[in-house]
C-alpha cells in the first residue's frame, strides 16, 4: 500500500515542479539553442584535452561491455541492445521546451541503472558519431567534450543518484526516475561549464558566462529531463513485466 502511494507521488510532485517552472518561463520567453557543442566550436587544445579526459572512460567502457557480453546473465546482450536503442530514440527526439527553444534528451539513465555507468560511454559514442557524421549535429572535433558530458558525467551522476536513493530505501521506480532526470540534466550543465571556461563573458568572466550558458542549456533541459525520466520508467516497467530482466538484479 505504501509503495503504491509513493509511486503516485512522483507524478504529483513533478507536476507541481513543472507548473511552477512553467509560470516562470511564461514571463520570460527567450530564444536559445540547447544542443551538443557544434563542430569547430572549441579551440584545438580544448578538443585534445577533452579527448584525453574521455579516453580512459571509453576504454573502461569497452572492458565492461566485454564482461557483459561474455557473462551468463540471462538476456544480458538483448538488454544491452535495448538500452542502446533507447539512447538512439531519445537523442533523435528534438523536443520543444518552455524556454521557446528545442533540445533533446539523452536516454542514458536506463542503461546506467542496468549495467552501471561504464558501458554508456561506449553506447553513447556510437550515437554521437552517428549524429556528427550524418546529421552535422555535434562534431568530430568536439566529440571528446560531448562524450564527457553525455556519456561520462551524465551516467556517473545518474548512477550515484540511484545508489543514494536506494540506500535511503526509495523504491526502484522513483530512484530510476531521478537517475534519468539528473543524468540528462547534468549533461547539459556540464556543457555549459565546458563552454563557459573557453568563452568567458567579456565583462563578468567565467562566472558570468557560466550563468549565461546555464540559463540557455540547463533551464531548457528541465522539462525535457522530467519527460525523459517518465519515459525511462515506462520502458523499465515493460522490461520487468515481460520477464526480460529480474528486478532484484538492479540493486
Amino acid at each position: 500500500m505504501k509503495k503504491v502511494f509513493k509511486k503516485h507521488m512522483v507524478p504529483k510532485v513533478s507536476t507541481i515542479i513543472g507548473l511552477s517552472s512553467l509560470l516562470f518561463f511564461a514571463l520570460y520567453p527567450r530564444d536559445a539553442y540547447a544542443m551538443h557543442i557544434m563542430e569547430g566550436m572549441l579551440p584545438p587544445k580544448w578538443c585534445i584535452f577533452w579527448f584525453a579526459v574521455s579516453a580512459p572512460f571509453f576504454i573502461y567502457g569497452l572492458y565492461r561491455m566485454k564482461k557483459i557480453v561474455t557473462s551468463t546473465t540471462q538476456n544480458a546482450k538483448i538488454m544491452l541492445a535495448l538500452c542502446g536503442a533507447f539512447v538512439f530514440v531519445l537523442s533523435s527526439l528534438k523536443l520543444p521546451s518552455v524556454t521557446g527553444s528545442c533540445s533533446h534528451p539523452t536516454g542514458v539513465g536506463l542503461g546506467t541503472v542496468m549495467f552501471g555507468p561504464g558501458v554508456m560511454s561506449v553506447l553513447g559514442v556510437i550515437i554521437l558519431l552517428f549524429q556528427a557524421l550524418l546529421l552535422a549535429h555535434g562534431g568530430l572535433t568536439t566529440l571528446g567534450a560531448n562524450c564527457f558530458s553525455m556519456t561520462i558525467v551524465g551516467p556517473f551522476v545518474g548512477f550515484a543518484v540511484y545508489k543514494i536513493c536506494r540506500a535511503f530505501k526509495v523504491n526502484r521506480s522513483v530512484s530510476l526516475f531521478l537517475c534519468a532526470v539528473l543524468a540528462d540534466w547534468s549533461t547539459y550543465v556540464t556543457t555549459s561549464f565546458q563552454l563557459a571556461v573557453v568563452f568567458p563573458d567579456p565583462t563578468n568572466g567565467v562566472g558570468g558566462a557560466v550563468i549565461k550558458f546555464l540559463s540557455i542549456y540547463a533551464i531548457t533541459q528541465i522539462p525535457l529531463a522530467i519527460a525523459e525520466g517518465f519515459l525511462t520508467v515506462i520502458v523499465y516497467n515493460l522490461v520487468i513485466s515481460n520477464n526480460l530482466w529480474k528486478e532484484s538484479a538492479l540493486g
Binding site: 520567453p29 530564444d31 520543444p96 527553444s101
Partner: peptide
Amino acid sequence: VAKGGSFAGS
C-alpha cells in the same frame, strides 16, 4: 507557454 519562442535549436 512560450508563444514568442522560435523553437529553434539552431
